[in-house]
Each structure stands twice: as structure tokens, then as C-alpha cells.
């Protein structure tokens, strides 16, 4: 039995109320979206806030709506099940739709939100454990201790970004709408991250992700998401890779993006690899050759560490395999790529 620490619960009905409630307390407060990450983490005493601000009553944060300019606004409280089953999203942004579909299991997708998945805490096998377990090891630098158990003598936390949707949103050039005490801001998701596993975001936890904005896709934009995990359900990624390919009227790739996850503290864009795909044409030898080169380069640039479950050498061997399969799936309009 895992009990939550004591806290009070606030149920605001507007973003402004939520921000005010976050700040009107001397101690720590936390926003609660679907609760699928924060609640287990609080049960493990990784967070012990005095106040929880639950976001379920804020209408503005729900809904998936196409804007007049062809862009898409996804309320941060849209569930992963909503995102995965949304027909227009599936057609326009397949990598995001597929990534949402592969997050955990059905119940957690019914509860967990897209905003929550973006703001997911980083994960490490020495961190996501009970207080008792962690205390037996003398804790770690991410919580309650000073040592790193992944890299001996390491000075920086390397807990892994483990959010499946983050690399998909990275490839799509999503913008994040935050609210804070001074108003609203919008930032490209690529600017959100910092290479620090203790807190891998450049915004404070007191800032509220209100919505995710996706730009209008090009005329022939394709994508896919590949996820390595032990089981066909429930598990966090052991490695994940999102792909976006933009094809011109002749079927030649003129732009591409790749982004990996479950490696280090931040999602890992593979820009050099993506550049190799430009100018190639799916179905022709140029593309087949580029896929091999991209897979080989991805294996060089992605170095899984023993920070999350799963043998890191096996995870490394799977980098090129999943990169290749995800690229082919994106080109063929297939996916998601997973082993079950």
C-alpha cells in the first residue's frame, strides 16, 4: 500500500484562478492534470507539496480545435486517448497520434493528458522507487541525496526524458502556450528543454502549460513513431524515435526531422541525420541508401545509458533498427513501429 503525503486540493475553474492558487501559499504547490505521473511520484515521496491545484475544471484547457490558419490547438488537458483517437490529428500529424497511442495502457491514456506528458518528470531506475528503497541506497542527486548511481562521480543528473509525445511534438515544431503570474507566453517546444535530469525544462513548475499549438502541415507531410519497450502495454519507452518527412509534388523529400527520447535528460533531435534525407525520394535507391546512413548515424549519436530499465547495450543495438523501421513506416504511411 502506497499512501499519498498530506496536502490540500484546490479545484480552480479558470487558468487565472489556478495561477493565483499556485502562488497563494508559502510552501510548495503542484499542478495536477491526469495524475498518472504526479500521484505515483508523490506516493514515492519524490514530491511532497502542501497544495495540489487540480486542473480538471478549467474548460479552456480541454478540446482539440483546428484554427482558421490551418494550425491545430490542443488543450493541455486533452487526454492521450483523445489525441490518439482524433481522426484529423491522425491524418495530419501521424507521429503524434501514434506516440499518444503507445503511451502506457488504456486506463492511463484515458487519464493522462498531452500537457502532462510534455511536462512529465524525467525518469531513472534509481529515482522512481519508494522512499524506503531510495533510502537504502543513500538516495541520489535528483532527490534527497548527492550521488549519481548511473555515472560514478557524475556531477549532472542524467535521468531520462521518457515522454513519448515530446519527440513527436519536436519534429512537428509545436509551440507551447504557458500561463504564469505575469500573463501568457508562447515558446517553441525545442526551447523548452535543458540538459539537467533534475528539472529538464526552462520553465518553472509554477508555470502552467495551457495548450499545445501545431503548425499547419505541408501538402504531403508524413510521419511515424517507433517505440521500444519490454511489453506491448504499460511500459515507458526504452527508446523512442519520431519522424517527420515533407515531400514535394514530385515525391522528393524537401524537409525532414527526427527526434529520439529515453536517452538523456532532454529529447534528442537528430539534425544531421535528418539532413541526409533531404533530396531523396521514397521508393528510389537514394532514399534506401539514405535510410541506411541515417540509421548508422543515429546509432552514433544516441547513446543509451543504464539510467532506465532495460539493458543499455541492447537498447543501443535497437537504435538503428527502430530508426530504420520508423523511417520506412513514415515514408509508406504506416506505423506505429513497435514489436507487438
Amino acid at each position: 500500500m502506497l499512501r499519498l503525503p498530506k496536502f490540500e486540493v484546490k479545484n480552480p475553474s479558470t487558468v487565472e484562478e489556478a495561477i493565483a492558487m499556485m502562488h497563494a501559499i508559502d510552501g510548495e504547490a503542484r499542478f495536477l492534470a491526469g495524475g498518472t505521473d504526479l500521484n505515483p511520484n508523490m506516493k514515492h515521496r519524490l514530491f511532497t507539496p502542501e497544495r495540489v491545484v487540480a486542473l480538471g475544471g478549467i474548460e479552456e484547457m480541454f478540446g482539440i480545435t483546428q484554427q482558421e490558419d490551418g494550425s491545430m490547438r490542443i488543450g493541455a488537458m486533452a487526454t492521450l486517448a483523445n489525441v490518439a483517437s482524433h481522426a484529423e490529428l491522425g491524418l495530419a500529424y501521424p507521429a503524434l497520434s501514434q506516440a499518444a497511442l503507445l503511451v502506457s495502457g488504456p486506463q492511463l491514456r484515458n487519464m493522462g493528458t498531452l500537457g502532462g506528458n510534455v511536462m512529465l518528470d524525467t525518469r531513472c531506475q534509481w529515482y522512481n522507487q519508494t522512499y524506503f528503497w531510495r533510502s537504502a541506497l543513500g538516495f541520489c542527486m535528483k532527490k534527497d541525496g548527492t550521488k549519481c548511481h548511473v555515472i560514478e562521480g557524475g556531477s549532472k543528473c542524467v535521468a531520462a526524458a521518457s515522454n513519448d509525445t515530446a519527440p513527436a511534438l519536436m519534429t512537428l515544431g509545436a509551440e507551447l502556450e504557458f500561463a504564469n503570474a505575469t500573463g501568457r507566453t508562447r515558446m517553441p517546444i525545442a526551447d523548452l528543454w535543458q540538459a539537467d535530469g533534475i528539472w529538464n525544462k526552462k520553465v518553472a513548475h509554477t508555470e502552467l502549460l495551457v495548450a499545445i499549438h501545431l503548425p499547419k502541415p505541408s501538402a504531403d507531410q508524413r510521419g511515424a513513431y517507433g517505440k521500444l519497450r519490454d511489453r506491448g502495454s504499460i511500459d515507458f519507452p526504452l527508446f523512442g524515435i519520431a519522424i517527420r518527412l515533407d515531400l514535394d509534388a514530385q515525391g522528393t523529400i524537401f524537409d525532414a526531422a527526427l527526434c529520439a527520447v529515453a536517452l538523456q535528460a532532454r529529447p534528442w533531435p537528430l539534425k544531421k541525420a535528418a539532413a541526409l534525407l533531404c533530396g531523396t525520394k521514397p521508393g528510389e535507391e537514394s532514399f534506401t541508401e539514405a535510410v541506411e546512413q541515417v540509421a548508422a548515424l543515429a546509432a552514433k549519436q544516441c547513446r543509451p545509458m543504464p539510467n532506465i530499465p532495460g539493458d543499455h547495450e541492447y537498447r543501443h543495438a535497437m537504435v538503428s533498427v527502430y530508426t530504420k523501421r520508423a523511417l520506412l513506416a513514415a515514408a509508406n504511411g504506416d506505423g506505429p513501429v513497435h514489436h507487438v
Partner: peptide
């Protein structure tokens, strides 16, 4: 701990009664 909330399978162990 699965229960249905408005017909949707949900985990009661990760849902606050207050929500």
C-alpha cells in the same frame, strides 16, 4: 483498481477523490 468514470476505465489508485 479499475473503475468506470462516466463509462471510461480509470485507475482509482491514481485518482484523487477530490477530482
Amino acid at each position: 483498481c479499475t473503475v468506470l468514470l462516466d463509462g471510461v476505465p480509470t485507475l482509482a489508485c491514481l485518482s484523487l477523490a477530490a477530482t
